[in-house]
C-alpha cells in the first residue's frame, strides 16, 4: 500500500545558502532548495538533460544554469528555458514552517 503523502522537514531555513541553491539529500533523493526572489522552491537536483547536479550551477535568484552544459531552468516553475535543456524540472511542493523548509512528499 502506498504511503500517505505528508509534509516533511528537510532543512532549517538558517542553514540555506542565502539567495542561492542548497543541496540536500532526503532519503535517497537529491534535492535542490532554491532561495528565489519569490520564496523558497524545491526541485529534484539532477538536470533533466544530462543529470548533472544543478546545485553546483550558477543561480541568479530566478534561473538556475546547469554546471555541465549551461542549460537553463526557471527555479520557480521548473520550466526549461534554454538548450540543451528541454524537459521541465520535477518540482516538489514546499513551504516554510517553524523555521524549517518542508516538502510535501
Amino acid at each position: 500500500m502506498a504511503r500517505e503523502r505528508s509534509w516533511q522537514d528537510v532543512i532549517a531555513i538558517t542553514d540555506l545558502l542565502k539567495g542561492d541553491v542548497t543541496p540536500v539529500t532526503f532519503g535517497s533523493r537529491e534535492l535542490a532548495i532554491f532561495d528565489t526572489i519569490q520564496g523558497i522552491t524545491v526541485s529534484m537536483a539532477r538536470c533533466t538533460h544530462g543529470a548533472a547536479n544543478l546545485c553546483d550551477g550558477y543561480f541568479d535568484g530566478v534561473n538556475i544554469e546547469c554546471p555541465l552544459h549551461q542549460g537553463l531552468f526557471d527555479a520557480r516553475s521548473g520550466e526549461a528555458l534554454a538548450a540543451p535543456a528541454r524537459v521541465k524540472l520535477r518540482m516538489i511542493e514546499a513551504r516554510e514552517r517553524n523555521g524549517m523548509v518542508q516538502i510535501y512528499i
Partner: peptide, 14 residues
Amino acid sequence: MPAEVLTPVTQALN
C-alpha cells in the same frame, strides 16, 4: 542512473 553522473565540478566539491 543520475547518481553515476559526476561532473568534474561536483567531483572537485566532493
